[in-house]
Design a protein around this nucleic acid. Structure first.
Lengths: 158, 158
DNA sequence: ATAATATTGTTGTAAATGCAACAAATTTTT
DNA sequence: AAAAATTTGTTGCATTTACAACAATATTAT
């Protein structure tokens, strides 16, 4: 007797890729809403950029673009805004004998960052209230592993 | 003797929210690149929409928007494209006594979906090669729980 | 019964985003 | 030494996206 095997259609919407995208999409939306509601004077992208700069003093513009996963053009535009607000300074320096624009966070920027971090923390804590710290840590570790493993497949033209 | 406690700045870029966004951003980029490379005639968003329709026969436009997390305007535009390609049909029906535009996948759409699913699977399998099936499952379960828990905080104006 | 509110989809518009082209300078190749 | 390729940042443009305004209809409230 022959065994009839039913092969179901593999739906993308059942995959982990889909869950990832949906989760991140919600997360991003939530972030934007929190930023708008709190009237912080910065968009969430500007905040993330500022935070990244504070962790990478003296980074050049292109390298920053790689970190925040935006292209050079938009990275430059975000930096224009942050510089205009006096939260960062930009200066010409060399890197591998080439002239590059580097940047650093200002006193004002640091203060702003500290202030925002506190406010953000409160608002985001709610979202993880139903998770134990261990669960969050485990999820974060897995996520990072996952991220590292797909990183090599993505072609970044930056 | 007083204990001096050093309180470090909590960086957003250390948080799970940041990892989520970065991972998803890479994932999205990878998806777009795969779709472009394979010359499938559909964007990844169109594919996801088509897949969602195939799983939700007779859904109305607004409900679909909620599922694919795009606003009504853009959902309508994506549907225009899919309809123009003959992959879905749209028809007027009622829902709670109201006239709504519902939709369903066509034969041609189903065939296309099947074809794409196969091609997609091959390309994405590489990205999870270094994970066991159990690990992926666990990550997916956590992700979904996380997604559900933040869902209630996000205001969807759809 | 009339007014207010809710549900649904479309159109218009402004902002965000990515990509390609460009310019300038340096390194590598031939 | 000259040519080609690489690194860096900017400008322009086309696409994507979200949001607001609108239209049409149905339900709920007064």
């Amino acid at each position: 007797m022959q065994k009839v095997q039913k092969i179901p259609i593999k739906h993308f919407t059942d995959s982990i890729y889909y869950d990832l995208e949906q989760t991140a999409r919600l997360m991003k939306k939530l972030g934007n809403q929190v930023f708008e509601k709190l009237n912080l004077g910065l968009t969430s992208d500007e905040y993330i950029t500022l935070d990244t700069i504070s962790c990478n003093a003296g980074i050049c513009q292109r390298d920053l673009a790689k970190l925040i996963l935006k292209d050079r053009a938009n990275t430059g535009r975000i930096l224009d805004t942050l510089e205009g607000m006096g939260l960062i300074t930009r200066f010409i320096d060399t890197k591998n004998n080439r002239l590059v624009r580097k940047m650093g966070i200002t006193e004002k920027g640091l203060k702003k960052l500290q202030e925002l971090s506190n406010k953000m923390e409160v608002h985001f804590r709610n979202t993880t209230a139903s998770f134990s710290e261990e669960e969050i840590d485990a999820l974060q570790v897995s996520l990072r592993r996952f991220k590292n493993s797909i990183e090599e497949f993505v072609k970044m033209n930056i």
